[in-house]
Design a protein around this nucleic acid. Sequence first.
RNA 1: GGGCGAUUAGCUCAGUGGUAGAGCACUUCGUUGACAUCGAAGGGGUCACAAGUUCGAACCUUGUAUCGCCCA
Length: 1035
Amino acid sequence: MDKTFNAAEAETRLSKAWEEAGCFRAGANAKRSDTYSIMIPPPNVTGVLHMGHAFNNTLQDILIRWKRMQGYDTLWQPGTDHAGIATQMVVERELAKDGKKRTDFSRPEFLQKIWEWKEKSGGTIIEQLKRLGASCDFERTAFTMAGAQGDTRTGHENSPNFHDAVIKVFVEMYNKGLIYRGKRLVNWDPHFETAISDLEVENIEVAGHMWHFKYPLAGGATYTYVEKDEDGNVTLEEERDYISIATTRPETMLGDGAVAVHPSDERYAPIVGKLVEIPVGPKEHRRLIPIITDEYPDKDFGSGAVKITGAHDFNDYQVAKRGGIPMYRLMDTKGAMRADGASYDEAATIAMAVAKGEKTLTEAETDAINLVPDDLRGLDRFEARKLVVDQITAEGLAVMTTVTTKVKDEDGNESEVTETVPYVENKPIMQPFGDRSKVVIEPMLTDQWFVDAAKIVGPALDAVKDGTVKILPESGEKTYYHWLENIEPWCISRQLWWGHQIPVWFGPTIEDGRARHPNELQFCASSAEEAQQKAKEYYDQVLGYEISVHVQDVAEDAISAMQTEKGRNPASSGTSVSFDGTGKICEITITRDPDVLDTWFSSGLWPIGTLGWPEDTAEMQKYFPTSTLVTGQDILFFWVARMMMMQLAVLDQDLPVEQRIPFDTVYLHGLVRDAKGKKMSKSTGNVVDPLDIIDEYGADALRFTNAAMASLGGVLKLDMQRIAGYRNFGTKLWNAVNFAHFNNVYDADTPAYDIPDAKAAVNQWIIGETAKVRVEVDAALDAYRFNDAALGLYAFVWGKVCDWYIELSKPLFNSDDEAVIAETRQTLGWVLDQCMILLHPIMPFITEELWGNTAKRDTMLAHAEWPTYGTELVNADADAEMNWVITAIENIRSTRAQMHVPAGAKIPMVVTEFSDQARTAWEKNEAMIQKLARITTLEQVESFPKGCASVAAPGASFGLPLADVIDVEAEKARLEKTLGKLAKELGGLRGRLNNPKFAASAPEEVVAEARENLALREEEEAKIKEALARLAEIG
RNA sequence: GGGCGAUUAGCUCAGUGGUAGAGCACUUCGUUGACAUCGAAGGGGUCACAAGUUCGAACCUUGUAUCGCCCA
């Protein structure tokens, strides 16, 4: 055997062997009908393995290997999601290298490029998972775009047709009224020009400014502004002809629809309902907006008055909706100030009429109004901000403040200069950034598709509340409830090319035989043919005669449609109707929505989509509902909750809830951080690459570290020293096996399957300890306490097997008794086999290698039988005997070390008090104690000779005669110290036992334990006191 | 501002009512026929603070402080 395990060489070889033997196929090693299945949280197809994946997949692999060895019919389903924005970005970046843009290609051409990229690079993370040892059924690798147009079926050859499943769900949810189209405020990425999900927005604190402006009251009205302190004393009273507003985004003032104050704010009570002027834009067309009340403004924040820009702020949007305030969109898809539509004069005139209540607009009409003054049109939003601030300040409508600064003149004389300047606070503000584009996200009013989540949330909530689905740690359940009980509509459309295109075709409405609103009718269907048929049926019926319906399969580019407003704004869309000679409609063209679905919409179907749903597949019947979902707590809402809602909503409603839940247990974990607890980030430079760790320490060390970190709800701090420590642990096991080799344990080349019928106490003892740890490991894994399983095994293998059993076995191997030697060989072989088996889920590589190195086996370790023996293997007598031996050895060693007896010196020992039990234990294990404690002889004496160091063991009083070397003072000090410690313990124990209430209220076994403990401590105390007395005699 | 959580040895963390644990680090000793990626021994803690419940609190309750994370 090599000196140490060569991880780099063995890992590749073993991975290949497992794969070739089909060890991880669904159902491999199944010995019972119970199933256990895990869906991998699909990594992004553009992704590379990071520590989060490594951690997450280690836990899944531990569970699946454990269950597979137990004989369950297991499936660990791998795959990737198609990651709309990320993938499109990666491919666009590749094109950019050749100086090309996406828009240089048609949509189908560009999609072909993505599929080519996917073929080439889309399997990266799956390959990396194999290096971790992940035992997924890789032949089933799925992909959330499988089956979509252009799919080359490379890298996910056997994936079920995900596209069909996604489209079917959309159509069904649409038909049930769970999906609708509407104009809502969404997170808009001005770089990618698409709506994005909350998940893709990072809120980052940046240095910002808060400007304070005056909004003059209309018609020069005034009011008395009064400020009071806490006691109601007036601190400020003045006549004002304005209301003061604070804002971090002055450019959005152009779209203000109102100014809101809190209903209880007395300062502004006199002017509620009055109109104020927005202090920007051409003087002759200043818009007037009302002062309204709403609960949203915070009286103590800024002036207490808030401008309401419903189209560009999420809070304002809610206020505007509540108050019926118009929302004017100010920007285009690139985040520049709008340059479309009618002139500012015209727009402002209409808006004015609306504000005065003379006119009401439809949503579309409101959206068509461009309230950006002509001089600001087309400017970038940040440019526009500067100009707006300048214009307001120039007009004298900025709130001013005085600042006193010290200046030095040419001669160095200091003087104070007081200036009046605009009041601008420099303060940190939270700003939303696109996690991929890194640009500031703009809340934007756009037409999008939404899932009416509130309608399907009920069953998802109930399933957790009634315990059908368990979330661990429990605190996750609270978070889950909190979010689901306040659920918002889910925006599922994205203005991208890569993704599942929305299966809805638009056509014109018909009134009195004439086409009215183009693109306002929706035909939702799972194919173009079906849409055509539906449309034809509809139009034939409303027109009363047959027409032909033409289907435009892929509409123009989603983005350009958005920019030109075509296809989104029915009013400006081109005609799609042809007429015959008599002016009657004879042909209608319906066009497909160019948008695609949010990747999470397809990921939400992962549990069923990967199993072949909507087909009634064997896998679906066997492995659904799945068992455990292991994932990061950060995607509890975005993925876990949505899977719950979707599976429960989509599957046959006649099935009981237990058969529609996607999984029965959700294990949530936090972010993997660096050793100091900092988030890993490229900018901090503390990112750890799991592949580097695997290269340096081996996959097993990384996996063991992951398991050891995984306490429920624990923080995950990755410490290199710890990884090194667990690499050492592997070496320790390796060397233990090496020791067994050396002692001819494996000479016969036969595996140690049967539990040895041992006679020697040491062997009986270690068999019992093995049984205890097996019970402990199963209990820990059952409860998802990976850390307990890992640390329990660590303590057993290192602390029990290596530190004690192997050491204690040495005298047995050196004995002359062939029977004892044979029994010990058998026991050691069995114990080490159990170590390999029990450690395999956590450290698959080194254990598989040892398994193969030690004997001819029927199966690979990955398919070895997981043991079921329990504490019936514990022999109480052997346990007591060996515990005595270990205590005796430890106490002798401790005394020796403290008395500075040279470590190598072998010395004699004497004994005075010696109970029968202690004597028997000694006699049966003399050779071991002598070897491990370096004792030559034991002699029973009446009393200790002069200069003897005391060693206590239960039932025995030992002494080490060290007359020549003993330092009386040192020995005294040592004993006093031990006595001190004992006194503390005794105090506590006696205090408790002397309290009558303790005996009365504490459980019996606790009282008994305390009594027993007290007796032992008292015995020890007596011995030490005796020893001290003897020392006193010597002087 | 709202929600969730944390505070235990120098460090990183376990510990769900019976009197405090691990690994690493530290000190001393050690080439003992598995292992120096090692062995033996040792030092080190008012369990953030305060009050309460209890025979008994690191653990339960309330409050305070500090620090995270998520959402506004």
